Computed example of a mutant assay.
Amino acid sequence: MLIACPACDATYQVPDHLVAAGRQMRCAKCGHDWHFVPEVAPSAERRPEPVEPAPVAAPPLERPVVSTPPTDAAKPGKLVLALAWVASVLAVAGGVAALFLLRVPLAEAWPPLERLYGWVGL
């Protein structure tokens, strides 16, 4: 939309959506402030055109596909998941056993560990 300053006639190109409902304006050239309200001529007024609904086509008749839930045999990932859990538990148990069985060499190598092993008795 082309807007002109009423004081100095400087023109500005402003997007319609910024001034559609009216807006307070200030001229960058002369500094004049004014409230701009767009003029809407009755003939230029936009009226929505009636939209005819598109014809609805009937969906093709098909038999529904019935799926069966997967069985345990169809899930190879279930065995892998169980083996991963077993391996994790064995790794943690092995780490705890190593800390206990190797407590003396570990305490000699790193003396602050003696506080951890103080209750076990070296």
Rank of each mutant, 00 (worst) to 15 (best):
residue 21 A to L: 11
residue 15 P to A: 15
residue 34 W to Y: 07
residue 45 E to M: 05
residue 24 Q to K: 02
residue 57 A to S: 10
residue 93 A to Q: 05
residue 31 G to E: 07
residue 44 A to N: 10
residue 20 A to S: 12
residue 62 E to Q: 14
residue 63 R to G: 01
residue 26 R to Y: 03
residue 70 P to I: 06
residue 64 P to L: 12
residue 88 S to H: 05
residue 14 V to F: 00
residue 31 G to R: 06
residue 70 P to C: 06
residue 84 A to V: 03
residue 70 P to Y: 13
residue 56 V to G: 00
residue 48 P to H: 06
residue 32 H to R: 06
residue 31 G to W: 08
residue 24 Q to L: 11
residue 72 D to M: 10
residue 65 V to S: 08
residue 53 P to R: 13
residue 18 L to Y: 05
residue 48 P to D: 15
residue 89 V to W: 03
residue 77 G to M: 10
residue 26 R to K: 13
residue 95 G to I: 02
residue 34 W to I: 00
residue 74 A to N: 07
residue 49 E to F: 02
residue 85 W to E: 04
residue 77 G to T: 08
residue 20 A to F: 11
residue 71 T to D: 12
residue 90 L to M: 11
residue 44 A to Y: 02
residue 24 Q to D: 14
residue 47 R to M: 09
residue 21 A to Y: 05
residue 81 L to N: 00
residue 64 P to R: 15
residue 55 P to F: 12
residue 34 W to L: 02
residue 45 E to C: 01
residue 51 V to L: 14
residue 70 P to V: 09
residue 45 E to T: 03
residue 57 A to H: 10
residue 27 C to M: 06
residue 68 T to M: 12
residue 16 D to W: 05
residue 61 L to H: 05
residue 46 R to H: 11
residue 82 A to H: 01
residue 21 A to T: 08
residue 63 R to E: 11
residue 37 V to F: 04
residue 62 E to S: 13
residue 22 G to S: 07
residue 82 A to G: 01
residue 72 D to C: 02
residue 33 D to W: 04
residue 21 A to N: 13
residue 75 K to F: 09
residue 20 A to K: 09
residue 19 V to S: 04
residue 59 P to Q: 11
residue 22 G to P: 03
residue 54 A to I: 07
residue 22 G to Q: 06
residue 94 G to Q: 04
residue 17 H to L: 08
residue 66 V to G: 00
residue 23 R to V: 15
residue 54 A to D: 09
residue 30 C to I: 01
residue 68 T to S: 12
residue 43 S to E: 15
residue 36 F to S: 00
residue 82 A to I: 01
residue 26 R to M: 13
residue 93 A to N: 00
residue 48 P to L: 10
residue 35 H to R: 06
residue 24 Q to F: 04
residue 50 P to M: 05
residue 85 W to D: 05
residue 25 M to L: 05
residue 39 E to F: 09
residue 14 V to S: 00
residue 83 L to E: 06
residue 28 A to S: 13
residue 78 K to E: 13
residue 84 A to S: 13
residue 55 P to D: 13
residue 67 S to R: 15
residue 90 L to Q: 00
residue 87 A to V: 05
residue 48 P to A: 10
residue 74 A to H: 08
residue 80 V to M: 11
residue 93 A to F: 03
residue 58 A to E: 13
residue 16 D to F: 01
residue 69 P to C: 03
residue 73 A to T: 06
residue 59 P to A: 15
residue 71 T to W: 08
residue 81 L to A: 15
residue 92 V to G: 03
